[in-house]
Design a protein around this nucleic acid. Structure first.
Lengths: 277, 277
DNA sequence: GGCGTTTTGGAACATTTATTCCAAAAATCC
DNA sequence: GGATTTTTGGAATAAATGTTCCAAAACGCC
């Protein structure tokens, strides 16, 4: 069989790959057919396998598999694998590019800026949907629903979230207290047995929030953390950690995803409390 | 840092991995912390990345990443990657599929709620771009950029927006004052000639906000309104009216679009002030 | 500010993995 | 059944990737 039977361009998507696979699969000699079959049955493992592994699985020598890749239109296995690795790529973590876009837009009109922020928000929301830890979310709802008074704490950039949560809890008649640092007052003595803390902070993490969470944790209260990464210092003292993959531009974080998650939490807690009341 | 701080057994599941990650992540030196953060934020890419790629992403040399793997309890990167490759479930489905799955999780569950809020947010963002009055936005930026001190007022559900604006203005060194009603104090005497008011309110409109806007307007200050409809009572005393078509889900609005518009306004004003300074 | 300790970067090295090539085997055709 | 073409396997080679190690820098502690 000639490698260049057709004017070949390498498939650039999983769909195109599959299409070409079915197109060529009849009329293939024995060993190559074995490759095709095994690959077809294990498309989702291509990204994480080596030539040797796939070849063994297909019960052919590595060289046969190489030939197969070439027949598919790629220069070799590496090129083919690259396509699969990129195809499963998550939507956004192209941090650098986005930042550049925003900077360029910053010098433009307000409308251009708006478009950027809207886009950042949309991407954050999509990525939130893809990455939410459902188990952690359920645990968090459960913990907060069982508690007496909820203590919501979040300062600086997290304060808008905290204040919205306080507002929503109030609307739903869930006893909640918003901890701010007005007058540098410290409200930690307000924590009582049976209460729970909902702490929100993002890098650079604010001391006060972490301290309050730690205090509560030390005293045996439930602590739910809403933060940006699992490695956040908040994770230390939390019984449930919810992370939000927000696209972050220094001070200019869109907060869309964070708000959506916070709101979900609040409403779910409210509903859960009604059920069990 | 010693590699064998603890009697280490290499995590054999993604959960165990994440648990250990949070356990060790504080008290890590700078480079290793960078590794931890980047890894935590890209867990789903470990299976399909090389040491070099991950190291570049974390902005550390490859050797630092190797050390990180060892601290996590593995003999090296290969062993760690092996675990992820075995656990590899072919990437999350795309956004649309995942969203559908979440919704089907059953109404009432937190996941289903999340899907709804995300959806509401996305729709709001989309319609924001379509419906924004560019002229009004430009005027608003102009007015706020020329003013001395900015007075940001927004209560109840608008308060999160107002507080975030105050935060962003502060970060950009734009003189701004957040009007809350702590202690029922009224700050209207803080308004001085040359200042401008940025008032935010949604139905049901809050008296205080409208009153402050009216007062400012009466005294000849510029007033920018961020509200839900052109017929809002705020419109009467405003020199520029920005409206946000936010979609509600249940009784609560996601605020995504409102935040995006607010952020745009703030950043545009900050940039404009720098230019003309 | 010197001294021991920890952390870091990168070059050298080792290992794994991909790829090529060609002679042997099988298939096809006359 | 022999000549010609296609297919195959594996050994040899090339490329890439992972890993170690050590000197230099940074840090923390008297």
């Amino acid at each position: 069989m000639e490698v260049d039977d057709l004017p070949v361009t390498a498939p650039e998507s999983v769909e195109a790959f599959l299409a070409r696979l079915t197109q060529i699969s009849q009329g293939l000699p024995r060993r190559l057919r074995q490759c095709a079959d095994h690959i077809a049955a294990n498309v989702d493992r291509i990204a994480v396998s080596t030539v040797a592994e796939l070849a063994t699985g297909a019960d052919v020598p590595p060289s046969a598999l190489m030939r197969f890749c070439q027949i598919m239109g790629y220069s070799g296995f590496s090129e083919m694998q690259k396509m699969f690795r990129e195809a499963y790529a998550p939507g956004f973590p192209d941090y650098a590019t986005r930042l550049k876009n925003l900077k360029q837009a910053g010098s433009g009109t307000a409308s251009a800026l708006l478009a950027e922020f809207v886009d950042a928000g949309r991407i954050s929301l999509e990525s939130l949907v893809k990455s939410t830890d459902e188990a952690a979310l359920t645990t968090a709802v459960e913990l907060l629903a069982q508690a007496d008074t909820l203590h919501v704490v979040g300062l600086r950039r997290a304060f808008p979230i905290a204040s919205y949560l306080a507002y929503v809890f109030e609307k739903m008649a869930v006893p909640a207290m918003l901890h701010d640092s007005v007058g540098k007052l410290d409200h930690r003595h307000a924590l009582r047995a049976g209460d729970a803390v909902l702490a929100i902070t993002f890098a650079p993490y604010s001391e006060e929030t972490i301290a309050l969470a730690a205090e509560a944790h030390g005293r045996g209260l439930s602590v739910v953390a809403l933060t940006d990464r699992l490695t956040s210092p908040l994770a230390r003292s939390a019984d449930a950690v919810l992370t939000v993959p927000e696209v972050d531009f220094g001070a200019f974080r869109s907060l869309s995803a964070t708000l959506a998650l916070a709101l979900t939490l609040a409403v779910a807690v409210g509903a859960r409390r009604d059920e069990t009341a």
